[in-house]
Design a protein around this nucleic acid. Structure first.
Lengths: 136, 136
DNA sequence: TGCCGGACTTAGACGATGTCTAATTGCCGA
DNA sequence: TCGGCAATTAGACATCGTCTAAGTCCGGCA
């Protein structure tokens, strides 16, 4: 797994230093949409001497190199999303957690009719409550 | 105009103090989606001794009383939107400015097919470039 | 008129978040 | 081994928003 991450970083033009690999290993495999400081504390669990600046540097570098998306959706959370495929987001009003929703699950019509803007990208942002999932 | 604002505040259960009216007068009539600190500096132009806490208090109160929407869409900007009707947003990648788009301009299908969440609200968030508008 | 109480406002401290800088470390090639 | 460059570091700094404790304003009441 570490090998895969190293290759992934390299293939995006990023020197795979030990610290960067540690950050990547966590942030690329989580689905919890962590904030930068959350990434820091997570990575520190295994890498206690890593500094905040290094984590921020790594995250910003990953975003710049298109390995991560930076999301600005909800209060108190600029957040990182390793899911680079197109998808929508649902924000749970109670917990503040962000969930991914498959691109095909909803469709947006008439983006083409917008005249004043050249739309490069879009997504649907939903707010709601996560349903208590069945036990079945 | 001041009279209208006073009535509006009162009708939402807000004591219309002089400072609150000043904040409301600016934030309810602008379309620039200002950040809280931007509101502060704008209001200070006419009301130089108003403190930051007062502006923040007023804005939070307005949000709580459904006079304003708080938007969390873009980097560096939690932002306030006096347009309480449903609408979508376009973010200009160059300037970072946020524009409103009428609700009818695009349609979203299949929200009803989402099983894991009870969707309370949604909107389409677009990124793009504002076209240089014709001179005609 | 003078006093009281509650709502409003204030300055500034505070905590959280993110950036910057200067110094240090570590690695690699000559 | 040495030199140089990239990566990393601690900590200072800026910004944003909240909180607190004190001060001000104003209406009601004697």
């Amino acid at each position: 797994m570490t090998r895969k991450v190293v290759e992934l970083l390299a293939s995006h033009g990023i020197q795979p230093s030990a610290h960067r690999v540690a950050v990547a290993q966590y942030v690329l495999t989580t689905d919890e949409h962590p904030s930068a400081d959350r990434v820091w504390s997570r990575v520190r669990e295994r890498f206690p001497m890593i500094s905040r600046a290094t984590v921020y540097n790594a995250l910003n570098l990953f975003v710049e190199k298109n390995l991560l998306c930076e999301l600005h959706l909800a209060p108190d959370s600029v957040v990182f999303d390793p899911n680079m495929g197109r998808h929508h987001h649902v924000i749970d009003d109670e917990s503040g957690r962000i969930y991914d929703l498959p691109w095909d699950q909803v469709q947006v019509r008439n983006i083409g009719t917008i005249n004043d803007f050249e739309i490069r990208d879009y997504q649907v942002v939903m707010h709601g409550r996560r349903k208590a999932r069945k036990r079945s």
